[in-house]
Design a protein around this nucleic acid. Structure first.
Lengths: 114, 114
DNA sequence: TGACCATATCCGCTTTAGCGGATATGGTTA
DNA sequence: TAACCATATCCGCTAAAGCGGATATGGTCA
């Protein structure tokens, strides 16, 4: 069951849950997540690497930017948990605050990439 | 989301998943879990305390024995995860081996309590 | 009451994991 | 090529968590 423990371990951290809550909606790049959560770049990057290694997200390079999105194809268990996260995390105030900061950041950027 | 992180943290350990896999079926006492998993008593007891504190199980004293069972009433999220655990853990060989050891132990005990 | 048993908690230890500033990497633009 | 930018990784540190033998607790039975 170490496989399953690994999947749940990724969810056993508040920062990673906040990142996942954002990625439930859309693909985002690192600087957008930084802006939404107001955490240092190394912290965000480290947690994203963790989520990638545990099968939760996929990344994609576009020029200088790295985009991260949910990985729906790796584990059945992950796929089954995703709807639960959607239900339980979306209503959290920590999430709505993060979403607002994300929108502000995107507005400041004037819709140019990242 | 610390509440949710706490719930998932309880699942982020192989030993606790093995304990929960057993409790998905039935209520068990500590010595039965020890026999099924072949782990020292302090280890089992510590993890059971962890599962109780994170809302996953309830305990009940019967004479000298402590019985543990799933807690279906604490968190909606827990309730929604339980069926996923049933699906994904029951087929694991680690679980079927543990179940066999549990049966053997119960047979040796000749159906007297624990 | 005292001996005994199941379980919980304590203890010292080791391992794991998180943090964030500093540095490395690797793609882009001039 | 060089300067620059976004991101990844390194590093030293601290806090959290797991381990299992030893001890404490609290219920039971004689």
């Amino acid at each position: 069951m170490q496989q399953e423990a690994k999947i749940f371990k990724a969810l056993a951290d508040d920062t990673r849950l906040r990142i996942l809550a954002l990625l439930l909606d859309v693909e985002l790049c690192v600087c957008e997540i930084m802006a939404a959560l107001e955490l240092p770049q190394s912290t965000i990057s480290r947690h994203l690497a963790y989520l990638r290694n545990s099968g939760w997200v996929l990344d994609r390079r576009q020029g200088v930017w790295m985009y991260y999105r949910l990985n729906n194809n790796e584990h059945l268990l992950v796929n089954e948990i995703i709807p639960l996260l959607t239900n339980h995390l979306a209503k959290k105030s920590a999430h709505t605050v993060a979403l607002k900061k994300l929108r502000n950041f995107q507005k400041e950027q004037g819709h140019q990439a990242c």
